[in-house]
Amino acid sequence: MEVRQFQERLGLAGLVDVHTHFMPERVLRKVWAYFDAVGPLTGMEWPITYRRDEDERVALLREFGVRAFTAMLYPHKPGMAAWLNTWAAEFAARTPDCLHTATLFPEEGVDTYVREAVESGARVFKSHLQVGAYDPGHELLDPAWGLLAEAGIPVVTHCGSGPQPGKYTGPEPVARLLARHPRLRLVVAHMGMPEYTDFLDLAERYGEVRLDTTMAFTDFSEGLTPFPRQELARLADLGDRVLLGTDFPNIPYPYSHQLHALERLGLGDDWLRAVCYGNGARLFGLERGDTP
């Protein structure tokens, strides 16, 4: 298997994938329906390569050698986040290699359910500014961001303007958020595409900002929003804060393609080892033998 061969060549103990999607089945079906319609919306087809039942998807990640993964789930309206957090806690309890994931939305009570999620063991949060169509600087979110910054819990945030811009996507809203909460462990999903350079700037400015590789550098994304080659040196320098993400199962190509896309950047085996395992293992304490 290509994924296992990639790990064996690098001598990796496995992969840590910070951007995989698991959510209640009826919610996931709606997400898949959206991607089925992306062709008419963007002019490009987006087939779901791993459109399978939940148990099969978990088994596939294990077969790939993914030691720890996430359940990136997100609300698109008020009243959803607490319910999604309950589901995610149950999923993590029955799936020990899944990092307990939670989410949030600017609404009354958000500080309460975020605190409850943290106290129940949440290891990572998801914030989707594009789908949720909210300003990360919304005053209702401020206590929650402060709590997450204090707890050191990473927040994987879709904040770039790809594949379609939203009212609050782009670097400016995130820059304002980080100015207020500079210790927030914000993980910029998709490398911030297409605003790669702006989000590299933020990562250089704030030591707790990280970037995930989700769909970046693949043939699919390079055809739409190519990563600027003049920024590869900066990407190499930030190698200790780049994390493997894939968007499994909602990807229009095999899982192995994301790994090969990283390899062909030519940034070296040490960089690949850090991105695909070491950085995530350190962030989540897996190097100490902790369970996800």
Rank of each mutant, 00 (worst) to 15 (best):
P154V: 09
V155R: 02
V155Q: 05
V156W: 08
T157L: 01
G160N: 08
G160R: 04
G160W: 06
P165N: 05
K167Q: 15
G170K: 05
P171E: 13
P171D: 12
P173E: 06
P173D: 10
V174M: 11
A175I: 01
A175R: 15
R176M: 06
L177A: 10
L178I: 09
A179W: 09
R180Y: 06
R180G: 03
L184C: 07
L184M: 04
R185E: 13
L186W: 01
V187T: 04
V188E: 04
V188H: 01
A189K: 02
A189I: 03
M191F: 15
G192F: 01
M193S: 07
E195G: 02
E195L: 02
T197P: 00
T197Y: 07
F199K: 07
F199W: 07
F199P: 04
L200W: 05
L200R: 02
L200C: 06
D201N: 14
L202D: 10
A203P: 06
A203G: 09
E204S: 03
E204A: 07
E208K: 10
E208C: 03
E208R: 14
L211V: 09
T213N: 05
T213A: 04
M215E: 12
A216Q: 00
F217L: 03
F217N: 00
E222L: 02
G223Q: 13
T225N: 13
P226R: 14
F227L: 05
P228V: 07
P228F: 08
R229S: 12
R229V: 14
E231M: 13
L232T: 08
L232N: 08
R234Y: 10
R234D: 08
R234S: 08
L235V: 13
D237F: 07
L238W: 09
L238I: 08
G239S: 15
D240V: 06
R241A: 11
V242N: 05
G245H: 09
T246A: 09
P249Y: 11
I251N: 01
Q258T: 12
H260K: 13
A261Y: 04
L262R: 02
R264F: 14
R264K: 15
L265H: 12
